[in-house]
Write a protein that binds this DNA or RNA. Structure first.
Lengths: 210, 210
DNA sequence: GTCTATACTTCGATAGAC
DNA sequence: GTCTATCGAAGTATAGAC
């Protein structure tokens, strides 16, 4: 999905992902999406009817995929602590495969879901649901201390989404020598996020693993 | 700043804050800002020259204020751990006083700073700088374990910004009965964020306070 | 400093031929 | 399914009177 695919609708969705991520719903231009997908603008409307429908289709698809990956981790084997590690790494991997994802997520949170219908919101809600399920299972099993599952969702995913969405602006800030932000790699970020989650969720002060 | 002030430029900035937060730079309408500020649109251009300049003025002001508050905490009295607690609570307070702030921050990260000049980016960079300074002092004093100060910035502030910016969409998701997200109050969120930061930064497994 | 009226541009969307 | 040409709405910005 990073590069335009063969078939028209897929190529359009791929181009739309880049455009909506970079400029938001209001800032996105249908002409640019069509040009980037190498289709005619009338073709785009033939397939998606309106800019809004294109946007919803894209969001429903991407949030569904993200939630599915997290649900698979939750339903898989291993301890709750291992699942938390995998959820953090899995989200980072997902973002690396779909680099437009974090910007769209940030924008949609800021937007308050203004352009979304019920089905799209349901797909979006699947992400916190999947994380909450993993954390709740760990609390119920006595592996984790009592934390609010929604707080766990925010503390696990917000930093990685924020960090990866912010790559362009960090680069710009570093380039202008306003602050050096280059010394923290994505891999190291994931490792520290896992360590931090482990400590935050540990049942007693002595955290598990290292 | 939540409600229009007496003087024109301040009233315009207050109205612009709400409009830009709710709709982003591209989605914001100059007409709406002028109407909400109860000034004529020509008056707005008389004071700010363009939509972009208005946006930059607003952002420089708000990021400067946020960074100043965090710097004051860092320069104040108390242990590093206390300063981390205060930084988290201070940011939550700041957001409650300037409710438009988190949405604008999320949008600008997603946007990659596209509409910002050097001065505005410098003001924006002041926020991670202030947090990094607090964390680095704690590491140097041996109060904290060795964490990357930039990671500490993201793990401390991203959750609270994300959570508070997401209030409207959480309300919508709860209203549509897609997931119950109402059971986590801002006060409780701050408390858990402080506890989580304490555990994450603790030098040994046994965390301080509790 | 303040207002009305409007110029100029861009953009989402469609008509209609093939 | 695919294209060209274009409409009509909406938006930023300014001219020019007071």
């Amino acid at each position: 999905m990073a590069r335009p695919a063969r078939v028209s609708p897929d190529a359009i969705l791929a181009a739309a992902a880049l455009e909506f991520a970079a400029r938001g719903f209001a800032g996105a231009r249908v002409d640019r999406i069509a040009r980037r997908a190498r289709v005619n603008k009338a073709m785009l409307y033939y397939h998606f009817n309106s800019k809004e429908r294109l946007y919803r289709t894209l969001l429903r698809q991407i949030f569904t995929r993200a939630a599915e990956r997290l649900r698979a981790i939750g339903a898989g084997s291993g301890t709750s602590a291992e699942k938390v590690d995998r959820a953090i790494a899995g989200m980072a991997d997902f973002i690396q495969e779909h680099s437009f994802f974090p910007a769209i997520m940030l924008r949609e949170v800021a937007e308050g879901g203004a352009h979304l219908d019920r089905g799209t919101l349901k797909a979006l809600a699947g992400v916190p649901r999947a994380i909450a399920a993993i954390v709740q299972a760990g609390v119920a099993a006595g592996d984790f201390r009592r934390v609010h599952p929604l707080f766990a969702y925010f503390s696990m995913l917000a930093p990685i989404v924020f960090y990866l969405a912010g790559t362009p602006i960090r680069k710009e800030i570093s380039h202008l020598r306003l602050m050096d932000m280059r010394s923290l790699s994505p891999g190291e970020f994931v490792r520290q996020a896992q360590e931090s989650a482990r400590r935050s969720l540990a049942r007693d002060a002595r955290h598990t693993g290292g």
